[in-house]
Design a protein around this nucleic acid. Structure first.
Lengths: 217, 217
DNA sequence: GCTTATTTTAAACGAACGTTTTAAATAATA
DNA sequence: TATTATTTAAAACGTTCGTTTAAAATAAGC
């Protein structure tokens, strides 16, 4: 007979889906444990607290996606100088690879990331940057190399603009494809949306500087 | 002696600040009423429910900003054909004007908008689109005119990308200026950030199309 | 197989939440 | 000023939440 997943895994699987859909504080442990078909107290037994469960859910994705990104960037970097599009392609590819290890993984991962950044000020931000700050710095550095005419200050801002595009789009992904479907728009799967974002953010990052930047030092 | 604001206004003023900072569901009525120095029950007396208070807070901004945007777009449109930058300038200007009627109004407004879009799926989205859908359509239409080489489908997506950039940036505005200040970045006021966004989204909206678009009809 | 460690279960805890109720205070009206 | 309507006030309501407890069930080790 088929092996039933461990309680820990059942909780993580149910939690990540609900967290991505409804947000962290809108998702109760009772809802998670009922969907996972495990006892309520098992969350605190296996993870300690809800906050630690949230971090465990996110860590499961970060530990896959971030090293994959680092490898992809280094592989590209070794061969030749990168264009901005290539840099963002190298970022999207490992994100899509998460889709293979877990059904709908890419969308869930990005939605979780967005929720974490907007909802719970600080605590998750700290968790991400302290555990994967090196990769994040690497990304900024490679982007800066691919767009050398853009000052570092402006790269900083524009990378956050791009992150906003990414996580907001994925956070409202379900609503967007509903509207898009009503307007007979095709190819609305996650990968297509991500590939739509690439030229947008690439053009944005390398855009001409606003005038008021020239005036200041 | 100075006139004390009405209970209704005191609630709205306290609520909008806390909602923008902490999100809707993370802000209790008890916290709002204690900051506003009014009785807890007065929220339900004056607004009916927390949900209706949220809508009232948002409506106070939407009723100012959205008509102002419509007027600004029409005024520009009457004179000459618009470039994308001019379109976005015409959108930013009325947003900044909110800053004069209420201290820090622009940041609060955009943060509320972002919270509303991401946090509470649907219910606020419906509130915005049914009350100000005409202006939103107008914006998309004018943007499409200013970037006629971009298919309507792509304009749809890219306007949502731009909205994501806008609201995500303002939602994490406080955290961003903290990081930016640590890196000796100047001119981090709300208007400067908005003016940084304009060339970014303008370039993004008019970016060359991704290859896979050409293959489909 | 017996003992120990680990995991699951049911029940309850205390705190915080939005909301309602009822009475007191204030304002408006005549 | 007397009466009515409006607003404020304090207290409690019923729910839901994350968490804890203590016993039952299962697994592991010898």
């Amino acid at each position: 007979m088929a092996h039933r997943l461990s309680t820990k895994e059942r909780i993580l699987n149910a939690a990540e889906r609900l967290f991505a859909e409804r947000g962290f504080s809108e998702t109760s442990l009772r809802l998670i444990t009922s969907k996972a078909e495990v006892n309520l107290a098992s969350v605190n037994y296996h993870f300690g607290s809800k906050k630690e469960l949230i971090q465990a859910v996110l860590a499961r994705y970060l530990d896959i996606a971030m090293p994959a990104m680092a490898r992809a960037l280094e592989a590209q970097e070794a061969e030749h100088a990168l264009t901005l599009e290539e840099v963002f392609e190298a970022i999207v590819e490992p994100m899509m690879s998460v889709n293979e290890v877990r059904p709908n993984g890419t969308a869930i991962f990005l939605q979780l990331l967005g929720r974490g950044y907007i909802e719970n000020q600080g605590h998750l931000r700290w968790f991400v940057t302290t555990n994967h700050g090196a990769v994040l710095d690497k990304i900024v550095q490679v982007v800066h190399q691919a767009a050398p005419h853009v000052p570092a200050v402006e790269v900083f801002w524009r990378m956050h603009f791009s992150l906003g595009t990414l996580v907001f789009t994925m956070s409202s992904y379900d609503a967007l494809v509903d509207i898009a479907r009503a307007d007979f728009i095709e190819s609305n799967d996650v990968e297509s949306v991500l590939r739509r974002i690439i030229p947008y953010v690439a053009a944005g990052v390398s855009a001409p500087l606003p005038q008021f930047i020239h005036g200041s030092k």
